[in-house]
Simulated assay, not measured.
Amino acid sequence: MTQRVQYLPAILAVVFCLTVTPVLAIVSAPVKAGGPVLIVARPGTDLTELVETSGGQVVGVTQAPLAVMGASESEDFEKRLKRNGAWAILDGEALAWLCGDTI
C-alpha cells in the first residue's frame, strides 16, 4: 500500500497539468478583431446591454449566468467592453476549439 501512495503526488501533478494546460491556452489566447469573443461580467449585469453599449452584437441564443458570446467589427471593442464592466474577454474561436466545435 505504501508503495502505491508514493506515486500519488506524481499522478496528481500529471492530471493537474493535463487539465489546466488547455484552460491556460484559452485564457492566454489573443482576441482577434472582428471574431467572436466570450464576455464575462459580474452577476446581475445585463450582458446583452453590455455588448450593445460597447458597439457589438450578441452571437448565438444561449447565455450563461455570467457570460455571453459577442462580436464586433470595431478594433476597440475589447477596450470598450472592459470600460463598460466586463471582467474578462476570451477568444471565442479558441474556446470553440476546446469544446470540440469550429466557428
Rank of each mutant, 00 (worst) to 15 (best):
P65S: 02
T53H: 06
V59S: 04
G34M: 06
V5P: 07
R42G: 10
T45H: 01
S28K: 08
G70R: 00
G56P: 05
L38T: 07
P36F: 05
L81N: 03
T21V: 14
V27E: 07
Q57S: 12
V58T: 11
S28F: 08
V37H: 01
E75Y: 09
L47F: 01
A29K: 09
T62M: 12
G60H: 00
K79P: 03
Q63P: 03
Q3M: 15
E73L: 12
D46Q: 04
E78R: 15
V68F: 01
L81G: 03
A13P: 08
I26M: 13
Q6N: 15
T53F: 04
V20G: 09
V23W: 08
G34K: 05
L47K: 00
V27P: 03
L8K: 12
Q57H: 09
A29C: 08
P65Q: 02
L81H: 01
V27R: 10
V51P: 00
L66P: 02
V37T: 06
Y7E: 14
K32D: 11
V31C: 04
R42A: 13
V5Y: 13
I26W: 10
G44W: 00
A33V: 14
I39F: 01
A71Y: 00
S54Y: 00
P65D: 06
E52D: 05
T48W: 03
Q57W: 03
P36W: 04
A64G: 10
L12C: 14
V20N: 09
V40Y: 05
V61M: 07
L66R: 10
V37Q: 06
T21W: 12
P9L: 09
Y7W: 14
